[in-house]
Design a protein around this nucleic acid. Sequence first.
DNA 1: TCCGACCTCGAACTTTCGGATGATGCCGCA
DNA 2: TGCGGCATCATCCGAAAGTTCGAGGTCGGA
Lengths: 207, 207
Amino acid sequence: MIRLLIADDHPVVRAGLRALFATEPDLLVVGEAASGEEAVARSYAGVDIVLMDLQFGNGMQGWDATRRIRERPGAPHVLVLTNYDTDADILGAVEAGAAGYLLKDAPPEELIAAVRAAARGESALAPTVAGRLEARQNAPDDALSAREAEVLTLVADGMSNREIARSLFLSEATVKSHLVHIFTKLQVSSRTAAVASARERGAIRSV
Amino acid sequence: MIRLLIADDHPVVRAGLRALFATEPDLLVVGEAASGEEAVARSYAGVDIVLMDLQFGNGMQGWDATRRIRERPGAPHVLVLTNYDTDADILGAVEAGAAGYLLKDAPPEELIAAVRAAARGESALAPTVAGRLEARQNAPDDALSAREAEVLTLVADGMSNREIARSLFLSEATVKSHLVHIFTKLQVSSRTAAVASARERGAIRSV
DNA sequence: TCCGACCTCGAACTTTCGGATGATGCCGCA
DNA sequence: TGCGGCATCATCCGAAAGTTCGAGGTCGGA
């Protein structure tokens, strides 16, 4: 018998997962959590698998809750369940110690199979996800530095170079310099393209 | 007895809604649809209420399906159910003929109440949504034209004026002209600020 | 200790963007 | 029938943005 904890802020999704697992005799939902904090609190030893949503309306986010759950000895396996399949989400979840990464629009069978695999201690990455992870491993080192990310965030908010300079107490030259590096790393040649690229990669969330 | 059709591309959400309504003796789920097309096809006379997701993975989107369902005589009422509560979504859904607009993270009771209200022919807008609609009514007329929105979408993708011009078979001057109008309507003064503003208002989706 | 990264800044240059102004044609509505 | 909104395009000009080259500083790892 595999004991499950469902962590999702949507009551409808929780009900759906509960209904889904009710049809399987070897799966038992032993609890629900509507927030990251609740998920951590309810992940006691009697839970085998935690189904974790990555996006909670407010408070602790899924990846953080995952990390906190996994860092305890004898912790349950965590299966991340999310709407989006952006690189940043995936990588973050895997780094936080998730045993698997599934999309919410996945067919029910796939979901159930992933739960059983995770319970056996196997990694259960969705096929599309596994490929993406590999691609990330082989990708050139284009990670933005902290300062560059900061500048890019302000660019995404629609600020001009001068405004960014003032806002960060820099000269405009420095802002431009950061932008040159950002463009190179993202392989683009304009600020709007940089923002679009960063969004695609999941380096920028918001809205 | 109120007969329901559930239209959502997520199997888990469909199961959740089905489980939710199963507890109410006066509600009966008579069908499910995983796409906009399917929703239109299954909205025959025997259905009282259609619960419509706005975001489908691909194909016909929710607001379009809503319009097609509602334009038929004796059509069922459509309750729009969505993750986001952006102005554009709400206004679009209401214009398409939705009887109500609900968020997926709403408590189950609210959802059930909305279904019953819609079945009685009443409008069932979530409280937060109703207020927003009023605000929109009183807001200045800053709605972008179809062409302007098209241009802005390409800007958000990071394209230059020249690229947009080529892509839409226009001269660069026309693109600039559209941008001037976009800037005026959004009360900004640069393309990146326009994109940021449009995102805030929900006029741009993607990613 | 040296090397590499990151952060900072300047100056000169080219390209693109944005503002101003004006013009034409189409379409719907009063 | 005329008015207004929309879409299309042109030209000119100043202001941003982006490019190139160079240079000084900190800091952590080899």
